[in-house]
Amino acid sequence: MSDAQTASGVHTLLIDRIACDGHGACAELLPELIGLDEWGYPIVRSTDVPGELLDHARRAVAECPVLALRVEQKHR
């Protein structure tokens, strides 16, 4: 995990738009990358997760009530 963390840009943020209910927890936990539109649905500012935000991104993934958020490692 520490390797991945230092190499920035190898992780991608994915939102399942159909599953997402607009709970907004992700924007509270990862405001650097996720904002909310006026209905409370997420707007992803950047899908690239820099290394220093990876822990926060994982926390946001774990906290999404409907499991609509994922962080995936990019294939290089």
Binding site: G22, G24, L29, E63
Partner: peptide, 13 residues
Amino acid sequence: VSGRYAPKRFTRF
């Protein structure tokens, strides 16, 4: 949580 309760003084998470 399921009902998306969002009071002013707490965050949802």
